[in-house]
Structure formats: structure tokens, C-alpha cells
Design a protein around this nucleic acid. Structure first.
Lengths: 226, 226
DNA sequence: TATTGATCGATACACTGTATCGACGGCGTC
DNA sequence: GACGCCGTCGATACAGTGTATCGATCAATA
């Protein structure tokens, strides 16, 4: 089509100036919708109706973008509670919930050092609520809870994806992986595992998470009171 | 140089036929030496003196290669011990040690479902050694320990990398990050964190890991005996 | 108004995972 | 022993990635 008959582009109302916040929000929207691997600087820039290189005025590297995304999610994690146990419990549950809302979060937590303001703020809230008791105890306790949550959430999301990938419901999952597991169990090389899978408890994800967390908090409490 | 004076390539003794095991071993060597991001199918194929497409006869996708690598590492994780507590403890320590030897392992664990033979075998060993006690208790216990280890190891490796990136020793780390932390603490927004960093315990990585693990095992033991 | 300085983004580069498909070589059959 | 087939191999290609470069453009200053 000739230039003459092609209409001019509608001069956009600038759509608001670019900013780190707008960039990160758009990136999170992308990741929530299509997964972390859908977040490329080109797609992100396109979503913001901008050239890819514009972004490098706000971030120096893609990893920095990911760091900003992680820190933004930490803003949703605000532990609360009266005693230290309630606080740690709420920290764990809030983190888990955030990972459910942003599955890509599970791929990132623990993977890079986190020193962003929101991450520091939730750390601050936890430490402050622990009530000044012996730092030699509270610091490892917080670290342990964090570690547990990271691992638990990761596995949970991984499982959820696997289920979703093979089919919508549990029936189809058993149909997809069942044959393989049946065959490998039929070799007799994993008798104990076989009994677990057949006779073991079928806890849902919530229960499993809470049970593990309770183990840990019980152990911490024992040291606290002694 | 002219063809005539250029020596023929030494006709290699075929170097052994290709196989999944050889491929995975080479990939692990690459990852150990230069990090996970250095493992590309092209570099891997080059290391095996083969065209890149050859590999697709042995794996269907790069993710499958990563799965194989993870399972190969699990072969080094063979928990042992007399009672259940010793077994879980040894499982945790062995996993940690594996992650120290193969830092990329920390990036991968918990990230994809693991059903390879070596992973199953170490699971089998653990379950078998738990001594037939109540499955409703042992299954969540194992899950919890696994979750803790995944998270703890991830954070540990992350920290190690951060230290290495900023300089060889701790002195340089404080010099690199100190200013930033000083400034943010000076804002007064994170008073509790500031005290922790200044007055808190400076545990080494071994201690931290063991302490958290002990918390968890204590909590599990309490349920076991009640 | 002229000049400068910052801002912007098109183009380019090196690299990735993977699909395609023509060439080759060993093997079974006549 | 010659021929044809079929499986194996890998060069080439494609679409996409993160990022460096650098000429054009635009605003503010002299």
C-alpha cells in the first residue's frame, strides 16, 4: 500500500512514561500468563510498545529484571502474628501463596541473592516480630524456615506442572505415568517405594506443606523453651 | 597453509561409540568446569567431537539431558545409617555434598519431576531404612527433609557464588556490598535487620545447615515417639 | 537561532535449541 | 560380485535469544 493512502499511526497518548515499576509489572503479567520462558526482552518491550533497547536504560541485564520481579513479589509477603511461631507460620504460608499466584516465583527463589527493599522489609518484619529473644537461636530458625519453604514450594509447583502437563485430572496422570512406574516397580528393584506408592498416605498439598512446617516449628520450639 | 604440507588428522581410535552415559558424563564435566550455562548442545557435541544433531539420537530435548544429569548425580547420593534419624541425616548431608561438588545441581533440584533410576534408588534406600514404621508419618518426614535440603542447599550455593563474584574472601565482600547495606540501614527502615547483621551470630555454612536440619529432625522425632 | 548533549531505537552479532533433508555407507538380496 | 535399500549422519537453515554499537532525533542551553 502506498504511503499516501496509509493512515498515520494514531499518536498514542504516550501511555505513561516508562519506569522500572511499569516494566516489572508488565514482565510479571507476561510471566503469570505464559510462564517465565515467555519473558524475553523483545516480547516485554513489545508489550510496552517500545523498542527492546529502551529497557536497558532501566536495567543493566536481564538477570536484574528477574531480581526486580522477585523483589516485587516479596512485597506481597508481609508476615504477621503475635508470637514468633505465628510469625514464622505466616511467613511460610504467605510465601507459598505467592508462589501459587506466580508459579515462576518458584523457579527463582533461592536462586540469586536477594537484597531488594521489599525482601529486606519482609525480613525486617520477621526479625522484629521474633521478639528480641536470643539471636543465636532466631537467626538459624528463620534460615531453616526459609529453606524449608523454598524447597517445599519448588516441589509443589513442579508437581502441579507435571500433573497439568499430562492431563487435567489425577486420573489421566496415573494413565500417563502409571505404565512406566508399573514397569519399573515390576522389576522388584524398589520394593519399599512400591509399597509406599500403593499403600502410602495420599495427602493433599496443603496437608503435606503444613505437616512439614509443623515438624520444623516443633523442633525450633523445643530449643526455644529449653 | 597448503593442503599438501598440512598433516592429516590423526585418525582417532573412534574414541568409543557414543552413548547416553558418555554424553551425560561430558555434559557434567562441562557444567562442573564452566557452569550450567556453558552446557549447550553445540559445545557438548564439540566436546564429544560430533555434530550437534547426533545428540538427538540419544535425547529428545535439552531438558531431558538436564534430567539425565540430575539423575546421574543422584547416583552419588546413597544414604546409610542404622536408625531412621541417621538415614535422614545422611541423606541430607550426601545431597549437600553433591551440590558442593556440582554447583549446577543446586539450580536444578526440585525444578523438574525426578523419576530416574538413581533417584528412585536413593528414595528406595531411604524408605527401606526407615524401618516399616507408620507410613503416614515417614512419608511426610522424608518429604520435609527433602524440602529443607533443597532450599538450604540452594541458598548456600547462591551465597557462595555471590562471595566468589565480588572477590575471593569475606573482606572484599564486605567492601563490595557493605556500602549499599550501610546506606540502606542508615535509612532506619530496617532497625531489627541492622542489629542482626551487626550483633547477630556469624555461623559458618556447615553449622547453619546442621542446626536447621537438627530442628527438623527433632520435630520429627517428637512425633515419632508420641 | 545555533550547538550541544542526551535519548532513542534500528541494525547487527554471536549464540541458542531444534527441523529438515540430502548424502553417505553398510547390508541383504539377486 | 553387483545392486538397491534403509538407517545413520551431519550440514544447513530457521526462529528466537541477550546485548553492543552507533547514527538519527529531539530538547535544552549558550
Amino acid at each position: 500500500m502506498l504511503v499516501w493512502e496509509r493512515p498515520e499511526p494514531p499518536d498514542r497518548p504516550v501511555l505513561g512514561r516508562l519506569s522500572r515499576e511499569r516494566i516489572v509489572r508488565a514482565a510479571i503479567r507476561l510471566a503469570d500468563a505464559d510462564g517465565l520462558e515467555a519473558v524475553s526482552l523483545r516480547k516485554l518491550a513489545a508489550a510496552l510498545e517500545v523498542g527492546p533497547m529502551r529497557l536497558y536504560g532501566y536495567i543493566a541485564t536481564k538477570d536484574e529484571l528477574l531480581d526486580l520481579m522477585v523483589d516485587a513479589v516479596h512485597a506481597e509477603i508481609r508476615p504477621a502474628g503475635d508470637d514468633w511461631r505465628a510469625v514464622l507460620h505466616s511467613l511460610a504460608q504467605a510465601t507459598r501463596q505467592a508462589a501459587h499466584q506466580h508459579e515462576w516465583f518458584a523457579d527463582l527463589i533461592g536462586g540469586r541473592p536477594q537484597l531488594g527493599p521489599n525482601t529486606l522489609a519482609s525480613g525486617e518484619a520477621v526479625v522484629a516480630a521474633m521478639g528480641g529473644v536470643d539471636l543465636d537461636l532466631t537467626v538459624p530458625a528463620i534460615a531453616a524456615v526459609n529453606a524449608y519453604v523454598i524447597g517445599a514450594v519448588r516441589r509443589e509447583i513442579t508437581e502441579r506442572r507435571a500433573e497439568r502437563a499430562t492431563g487435567v485430572d489425577k486420573k489421566q496422570w496415573q494413565a500417563a505415568l502409571g505404565p512406566y512406574l508399573e514397569r519399573t516397580f515390576a522389576t522388584g528393584r524398589f520394593p519399599a517405594l512400591a509399597t509406599v506408592v500403593r499403600d502410602g498416605p495420599h495427602l493433599d498439598a496443603d496437608q503435606t506443606f503444613r505437616t512439614g512446617l509443623d515438624f520444623l516449628l516443633d523442633g525450633i520450639e523445643a530449643r526455644f523453651s529449653s
